[in-house]
Amino acid sequence: MPLDVVVCLKQVPNPDLQFQVAADGKDIRRDALNYKTNGADEYALEEAVRLKEKFGGKVTALTAGPKRAEQMLREAMAKGADAAVRLAFDDPAAVDDYQVANMIAAAIAKRPHDLVLTGVQSDDYGYSATGPLVAGFLKIPHASVVTRVEVSEKGLKVWRELEGGDQEVVSLARPALLTIQFGINQPRYAPLPAIMKASRQPIEEVKPTDLGQSTWDGFRGPYTLAVRKVSPPAAKGHAEMIPGNVADQAKAVAQLLREKGFVRG
């Protein structure tokens, strides 16, 4: 039973960086960022490729994002995706997840999809909303925070993570959408020949007109949405920082631990 799997990927700013507010106060400064594939999406891609290796079929890596995201799609192809699609949505901030999910759903609706995978959350925004939104627009069942997938004749059996380390076992009819949790597998590295090959593979570009709208604004919901302010978080209870070089810091912390009675003898 070959599976057509569409895996949705997002390119995000490396979250280990320090960020600055843009001059207009409505976004972060984006001129000096480096971008990477969203962490959870790496696991979604790996799961898609493993399912294809087991059951046959095709993996399509899909993103909505600026041209720079092609790099991520090529990496996905080097790791086993058969085809890549980029919705040419150039808004670098993309704060309206309803709009983004709506356009992604429209693009998926036009191609075969037994299974749609996304990451459980994006590392930049952390809304965990895109997957269930896409499923809602496609009117297909979904499950979030998936840590294990079993494919059966007609459907899927999946394990969903709940709070406190508990899991919930559910089954879904196909087609279905799953948001994939960190740790479900160990993502592979791309072998060099595959990277070379992927650099020559085509990437399908989708424009709003291909999906029946004159602009991407046609995918917005019935509301207005505006960023009022981006700012460093108001420090609530910032830690008292221990100054000095490592030797000074170690001395100070050892002293502190002694004073608080954590050191015996």
């Binding site: 207005t224 949405l225 960023v227 009022r228 302010k229 981006v230 700012s231 460093p232 978080p233 108001a234």
Partner: peptide, 8 residues
């Protein structure tokens, strides 16, 4: 690392 205020 950043706070955002959104008006809908």
């Amino acid at each position: 690392k950043m706070a955002v205020e959104l008006a809908v």
